Structures are given as structure tokens and as C-alpha cells.
Amino acid sequence: MRRSEFLRAVDDEFGARATSVVSDLSLGGVGYRTAAQALAAGVDPREIWLALCVEADVPEERRHGVGLLDPRR
């Protein structure tokens, strides 16, 4: 997962709350850092996304394959 895909996935899942979720929510899966802090520290965006999903109780079916752009036709 690329950083841009991570940001799209967060926007899709959390909508208007996306910015505050990334900057305020402490994620145990990445050392109790926020997603923004983890990104700045170079943690893999996929690892951050999964930690965010666990912390925010995102259903399994919405955790995989999100953030990807639709293929060009």
C-alpha cells in the first residue's frame, strides 16, 4: 500500500473525520503513535492502515483492497 492509497482509504472509511483520525487517534499496533506520526517515522502505510482498522473496529470486509484507484479503461 502506498501513502496515497492509505490516505484514500482513510478518506473513504472515515469521511469528514479522516483528518482527526489520522492526527489524534493513538494506534497500539504502531507503538502508540498516531497515523501521522507513524507515517513521518517511515512505518509502512499498510501496517498503519491495519492498526487503524483494529483500533477503529473497521469490519474485515472493508480492510483489504481499499485505497486503490479503479483501473483505467
Results as ranks from 00 to 15, higher is better:
M1Q: 02
M1N: 03
M1H: 04
R2P: 04
R3T: 15
S4V: 12
E5R: 10
E5A: 12
F6T: 10
F6V: 11
L7N: 06
A9E: 03
A9N: 02
V10D: 03
V10W: 02
E13F: 03
E13Q: 14
E13S: 12
E13N: 10
G15K: 13
G15N: 12
A18M: 00
V21M: 07
S23Q: 13
D24A: 14
S26T: 15
S26C: 13
L27F: 08
G28R: 12
G29M: 06
V30L: 03
V30G: 02
V30K: 02
V30Y: 01
Y32P: 03
Y32R: 15
R33L: 15
R33S: 15
A36V: 09
Q37E: 14
Q37K: 08
L39A: 07
G42C: 14
G42T: 14
D44G: 05
R46A: 15
R46D: 12
I48Q: 01
W49M: 07
W49F: 04
C53G: 14
C53T: 14
A56N: 00
D57P: 01
D57M: 06
P59K: 05
P59D: 04
E61W: 00
V66W: 06
L69D: 13
D70P: 13
P71T: 04
R73P: 15
R73A: 14
R73N: 13
